[in-house]
Design a protein around this nucleic acid. Structure first.
Lengths: 221, 221
DNA sequence: TAGATTGTTAATCGATTAACAATC
DNA sequence: TAGATTGTTAATCGATTAACAATC
């Protein structure tokens, strides 16, 4: 079929489609047209049809899309039926929040290990898993072969960890640190969550809303 | 100067520039060319120059950019010198993680109130602020006039809260919920942090890496 | 001055939207 | 069949990259 790889813009919209379809499903909606979905989601119908057709013809002319089928298909495309062995490193506030907050299993992620470098935390149990010291990473990874790591550690810690993890065959990262994994380790798959960047973007927009595009400093006169 | 509003793609890159420049500053680097910065950041020099020139001519031909000046300018563009009155709603795991994790003041955000609807949490003190019940929102906002709300609550709670907050003049949201504020309340400024979506995007890429673009179900044959 | 590097215009590339024939 | 709505091609729009004259 010669699929040329789907653009990241499209991929990033899939989870949102998945959520909306899940809700329609909860409301027992059986079919939906691209037009109606587009109105609910604030997109164009064209875009929805284009996006979906990157992966296959899931609709039917004159009818629209079967909600349940489409929901399931997108779930499969996103790999939510998998069991990707995953470790989480850094069990501070953020790590704990993520652990308790995300529905990992239903996203195809299986957390098989927790690590921290603070002796005070090592040995503590969270959701059936015991926090191990980061010194144990090598032994653990050789035995259990995790594919994904969630990094809830500061930048300088991440830097060292990623070097070690890459050697151990971990090449996918959900990265909450400011360390630029993709730049330093090409060939890895990285999804960055830069909360600070997001907040700063909001700040910009707030400022813009209040005093629209005040010309900046700029050129000497 | 007739600034036409800067595209969101550009704005989203500003925090990253800011971080890189901050680090150069820490390493006592005084000047940098777009070319060298582009290599460090994994961008093109062209893009950096285009981006910066949306806001003014901060460089100097034959020299490059003064790191300290540029860092400060971008900080100002992002409004980091402001004191935006902000409330945080939902002081569970995620809310706490964010409170302890973000350097709010240095981003121009001043947290002036914490709210939760759980009686068990009301009265607890975190970082000098006492958690109040969400019932108090109206009284609080009328008196203190916050501009920004951070929503660390589930979707159905957010739905109700945003309606109330909009009436109270809060029109900027850092949104961790799945409620689609922008679709339902045009005129607000919203920055979504959809952790689940981010994780699912990673899952897709992991799957793609392992079994490159397996053709999907698609058309009946 | 010569060399370096910007600011800015033009060219390219990619993503979104519009249009419409195919078809259920 | 007539109406609806897809899948897909073509047109538009916007963002990125390349090129180069301006200038420090």
């Amino acid at each position: 079929m010669g699929n040329k790889s789907v653009s990241i813009s499209v991929v990033r919209r899939l989870p949102r489609y998945y959520r909306f379809l899940g809700e329609l499903l909860n409301h027992s909606v059986q079919r939906i047209s691209s037009r109606e979905l587009s109105q609910r989601m604030g997109l164009t119908a064209s875009q929805i049809r284009q996006d979906l057709n990157c992966f296959g013809g899931f609709g039917q002319q004159g009818y629209g899309y079967n909600v349940e089928l489409l929901h399931r298909e997108i779930g499969n495309i996103l790999g939510m039926n998998q069991h990707k062995k995953t470790i989480l490193i850094g069990v501070g506030n953020l790590g704990r929040a993520i652990l308790s907050h995300m529905a990992f299993e239903e996203k195809g992620i299986e957390i098989i290990g927790l690590f921290d470098r603070s002796e005070a935390l090592v040995g503590e149990k969270i959701g059936g898993l015991t926090i191990a010291h980061t010194d144990e990473l090598e032994a653990f990874c050789r035995e259990r072969q995790p594919k994904v790591a969630i990094l809830c550690v500061p930048k300088y810690t991440a830097e060292d960890l990623v070097v070690r993890l890459c050697k151990l065959g971990v090449n996918a990262y959900w990265n909450f640190s400011h360390y630029d994994i993709a730049v330093h380790h090409p060939g890895t798959v990285v999804e960055n969550v830069h909360l600070g960047d997001s907040l700063m973007t909001l700040c910009y927009e707030v400022k813009e809303m209040e005093e629209p595009s005040a010309p900046q400093g700029g050129k000497k006169e």
